[in-house]
Write a protein that binds this DNA or RNA. Structure first.
Lengths: 211, 211
DNA sequence: ACCTGAACACCGTTCAAGT
DNA sequence: ACCTGAACACCGTTCAAGT
């Protein structure tokens, strides 16, 4: 006798809103997360969302909280402290690259430091093992941290805007490269982000640990 | 006899549109650059702007072109190649920090590489002077470039979202710092971006040049 | 306690119409 | 060649009203 009623929807919850929001961001990027699209996705009125999460700002805050909480633990590998720091940095990069959109949102909402705390602890441990202490160790930790985040931001951006106008190719010919055709060849091609990252971190850590 | 006419406005030009757009961005940030606010600023109808610059996308493109073209030259200082590379990086950072909003737009529109070309040439020169050539030199150039851009992006973000919740202070106590109170003290305070940058670049360049 | 539609003040963009 | 207002399809948010 109830078969002609409108379909019974599961009652809207804060968690359901957050999950739908996350899936929108993961699938179509942050700009796809509008209150109206979210409501459509959930099959509710736009205004219902407001009752559960306040407004768009606090929705984003909550989403970011969730992402930070869910970020996995990372374990260093390798024998020397330098190798272990490099492995931490690479693992961190891999972890953060898993959900680039969400990470971007974390960053944009100023929670990057907080997200980095577990990694920071591990880094401190390795710096101590390498014989650095106090302000020196702290600065080394921060240098690695900035490098990881910085490279991620640069990469994310390259991926989002791959078309470089006029583009490097026509700008690096053998003539402009100080008679170094091999260099011209490498610089005229888009960089391999992973390679640049690994090389940078190795050099950075080497420079930090022996001086 | 023409004194009661509406005030004669200088005819709208593409340049006038670009200048007004730039000033809006510099003063109030990229989100303040809406077509309607721009029209209000110029005292014209919104739609007039479209005649001169096409649409919002091409307006941003043109704005970014202009910024890139106006970026000044940078000269290396110092005696050793390492010192000269560090000085290039620091000058670059200072230059880019002068108009953070515009630089952010350049980056978001994928023109960062292009903007970096003059600096890239100078860096290549120094890498050659330091004895690096070919792929090794190219990778070193890219590492420095990524480091400069990366640090800038991280800093810009810290400045935009200075409120860190819960914040590092309560997270770094002597107890959690592996018995290193000096380190805990440094890590519980917000980093001095300039210091971190200089230390990072020095270590990176040292690591790149001697291995 | 939860959900709704109407309404408001914003967007970018198109288009037909003016000079 | 240049400028205009009206109109369209989008935003986030508020609010009074429903159950």
């Amino acid at each position: 006798m109830t078969s002609t009623e409108p379909p019974v929807r599961a009652p809207l919850t804060r968690e359901a809103v957050l999950s739908a929001a996350a899936s929108l961001v993961i699938q179509h990027g942050p700009q796809a997360l509008t209150m109206r699209k979210l409501a459509a996705e959930l099959g509710t009125a736009v205004t219902s969302i407001y009752w559960h999460v306040g407004n768009r700002e606090s929705l984003l805050d909550a989403l970011v909280e969730r992402t930070v909480r869910e970020l996995g633990e990372i374990r260093p590998r390798g024998r020397t402290p330098a190798a272990r720091v490099v492995s931490l940095a690479r693992a961190l990069r891999r972890e953060l690259r898993a959900h680039p959109h969400l990470i971007a949102m974390v960053h944009e909402r100023g929670l990057t430091e907080r997200m980095f705390l577990p990694a920071q602890r591990a880094l401190v441990h390795e710096m101590h093992a390498a014989g650095l202490r106090g302000a020196r160790a702290a600065e080394a930790v921060r240098a690695v941290q900035f490098a990881v985040i910085g490279h991620l931001l640069v990469e994310r951006n390259r991926e989002r805007a791959p078309v470089q106008r006029p583009g490097e190719p026509e700008l690096w010919t053998a003539a402009t490269a100080g008679d170094d055709p091999a260099l011209a060849r490498v610089l005229s091609r888009p960089p391999d982000a992973e390679r640049v990252f690994t090389a940078s971190i190795r050099a950075l850590v080497a420079g930090l640990l022996d001086s």
